[in-house]
Amino acid sequence: MDIAENAALVVVDVQQGFEDLDFWGTRNNPGADENIASLIDAWQASGRPVVFVRHDSVGPRSPLRPGQPGNAFKQYVEARRGKGGAEAELLVAKSVNSAFYGSPDLDAWLKGAGISQIAVVGIQTNMCAETTARMGGNLGYDVLFVYDATYTFGLEGPFGWRREAEELAQATAVTLHGGGFARVVTTGEVLDAAG
């Protein structure tokens, strides 16, 4: 795997509100936060750009809505912001699933910087991380979806169906990889290639 010298790491919605398990339920992949932190560190050490994406929920009960403590980035992410230099960092705020529908315009920023490869990490695997990866693929980016640097929660669907977090995460990986939206990879593979 080749990681471009200017590949952008897109860190999706790693916010304190996702610690509210009474609201979200049971999560998968307890190692995700450590993997996200190591990828941010590697990107910043190499001078590659990092995009921090924050979800400003419009849901009246969401712990991610602006003005609530849960809207803030998790402490380990906040501590790393600003370490990559102004030219190598972007903050995108959004209120929908895709980071490409946030402000400022992520697609315009990436294209303006000549970036054609992105690595997507963050929360939730099958929601905002997946939607960002799908749109990135549709827009022509070479998308790496770092599976073990994401996590999600179980979910109720139609017809009384319920899927647990790990099932949903695996379904996302199969759809993204099998559908040609992204290459699904691991943190270890990415760190080896980016070094």
Rank of each mutant, 00 (worst) to 15 (best):
D2G: 14
I3M: 08
I3N: 09
N6Y: 13
N6H: 14
A7V: 06
A8T: 07
V10C: 00
V11E: 04
D13W: 00
Q15S: 04
Q16P: 02
Q16T: 10
F18H: 04
E19I: 04
E19Y: 05
D22N: 12
F23H: 05
W24F: 10
T26L: 06
N29P: 01
P30N: 13
G31Y: 08
A32R: 02
D33H: 07
S38A: 12
I40K: 02
I40H: 04
I40L: 03
D41V: 02
Q44N: 14
G47I: 15
G47R: 09
R48C: 08
R48E: 12
V50T: 09
H55N: 12
D56I: 01
D56W: 03
V58H: 07
G59L: 08
S62D: 10
L64G: 02
R65V: 11
R65E: 12
F73I: 10
Y76G: 00
E78N: 08
A79D: 15
R80N: 13
R80P: 15
R81Y: 04
G85A: 07
A88N: 13
E89I: 01
E89Y: 04
V92H: 03
S95K: 03
V96Y: 03
S98P: 03
A99Y: 02
Y101T: 01
S103M: 10
S103T: 15
S103P: 09
P104K: 08
D105P: 00
D107C: 01
A108S: 13
A108I: 00
L110I: 06
L110F: 04
L110N: 06
A113T: 03
G114S: 13
G114R: 08
G114T: 07
I115K: 09
S116G: 11
S116E: 15
Q117C: 08
I118H: 06
A119M: 08
V120C: 01
V120E: 06
V121K: 09
C128H: 04
A129Q: 07
A129K: 05
E130S: 06
E130G: 03
T131N: 05
A133C: 03
A133V: 03
R134T: 01
R134C: 09
G136A: 05
Y141N: 06
D142R: 13
L144C: 06
F145W: 08
D148I: 10
T152D: 08
T152L: 02
T152P: 11
F153G: 03
F153M: 02
G154P: 06
G157N: 07
F159C: 06
W161D: 12
E164S: 10
A165K: 11
E166Q: 15
A171P: 00
A171I: 14
T172H: 06
V174C: 11
V174R: 11
V174S: 14
L176D: 11
G178W: 06
G179K: 12
G179W: 15
G179Q: 15
G180A: 13
F181L: 08
F181M: 11
A182Y: 08
R183M: 12
V185C: 07
T186H: 10
T187V: 05
E189M: 10
E189R: 07
V190G: 10
L191A: 14
A193T: 02
A194Q: 14
